[in-house]
């Protein structure tokens, strides 16, 4: 048993050594150097990379863009996924069919979707007359900072809402029927049941979804890379775009590594705060 266990897990141990432990140690060294991927000279620069990153307007832009996107993305994805889950759950038949259907956006490659979105939002697209009728003018979607953030957030919400809906759906299906029956006997109406039973009982699902959704906002790459390049005016300049730009365009490996450390710290802190807030809400609802 002893030996077999180690033999069978040895591929993992080897993999972790090469692709986890070594890169980890390497990154701890990299952040204190000014290596530019080409020069044979590598200087130890102490905390310079971090100091520079904290002062950099580009890093500030990345920091704020994550929260701007979150501000649009969280309400959109929560409303969409919850609505879809409630709708599917209320259907007498065909739930599996609709679950599969609404999950389909999750399967899309961001690259393909970006292509479609750019086509639809183009100035002379077939959708342009509709926008013109709605807004009086054809919006310059990617030329306006708020609209650009809105579109990027909408795309990500579109992708994830079916996935999150499944989490909510699983939560909905675990709510005991007796609760609703008892409430109906007391004359509770739709909204009373929704706010007094359904949403509180969905707390575990909310918890999972929110933690996932918040963490996601600090790791966005494909959509802005394809559609805005971080613009206009760095409104959609995400953390990953900045890391990509510094390391793979500017070749500043040490500086880029420092930014990725800052990104990890900011993500961790933000998720922790959301966790604490959620736990407070959970305690108020009587969850441990």
């Amino acid at each position: 048993m002893e030996v077999r266990g180690w033999i069978l897990t040895s591929p993992y141990l080897l993999y972790s050594l090469v692709f986890f432990a070594i890169p980890l140690a390497w990154s701890l060294w990299l952040v204190f150097t000014n290596w530019n991927l080409i020069s044979p000279r590598i200087d130890f620069v102490g905390l310079d990379n971090f100091v520079r990153a904290f002062k950099s307007a580009r890093v500030h832009a990345a920091f704020f863009s994550a929260y701007r996107i979150m501000g649009f993305f969280l309400p959109m994805v929560l409303v969409q996924s919850l609505a879809v889950a409630l709708l599917i759950n209320s259907l007498p038949w065909g739930r599996a069919f609709f679950s599969v259907g609404f999950f389909m956006p999750y399967l899309a490659s961001g690259v393909a979707v970006a292509l479609v979105v750019r086509g639809i939002l183009a100035y002379n697209s077939p959708a342009a007359p509709i926008f013109k009728a709605l807004f009086g003018t054809i919006p310059n979607w990617f030329g306006h900072p708020v609209l650009a953030v809105f579109i990027i957030s909408l795309l990500i919400a579109w992708k994830f809402s079916g996935y999150y809906a499944l989490i909510f759906l699983a939560g909905l299906q675990s709510i005991p029927h007796e609760l609703y029956e008892a409430a109906e006997l007391d004359g509770a109406r739709f909204f009373t049941k929704l706010f007094r039973i359904t949403l509180p009982m969905l707390y575990p699902a909310f918890y999972t979804v929110l933690i996932m959704a918040v963490g996601l906002c600090f790791a966005i790459f494909t959509e802005p890379f394809m559609l805005t390049g971080g613009g206009p005016g760095r409104a959609t300049h995400t953390w990953y775009l900045e890391i990509y730009y510094q390391v793979f365009q500017n070749l500043r490996a040490g500086y880029g590594a420092a930014i990725s450390f800052i990104n990890a710290a900011v993500t961790f802190t933000s998720v922790l705060i959301v966790r604490r807030l959620m736990q407070r809400w959970g305690r108020a609802l009587g969850y441990e």
Binding site: Y12, F20, P23, S27, L30, L37, W239, V247, A264
Partner: peptide
């Protein structure tokens, strides 16, 4: 080993991107 896997699951992958590329 199991706990290490859990640790790795929640470890921010972005930190490994650059060194893994160099490797």
């Amino acid at each position: 080993v199991y706990n290490f896997i859990l640790f790795q699951m929640f470890y921010p992958a972005v930190i490994l991107l650059i060194p893994t590329f160099l490797l």
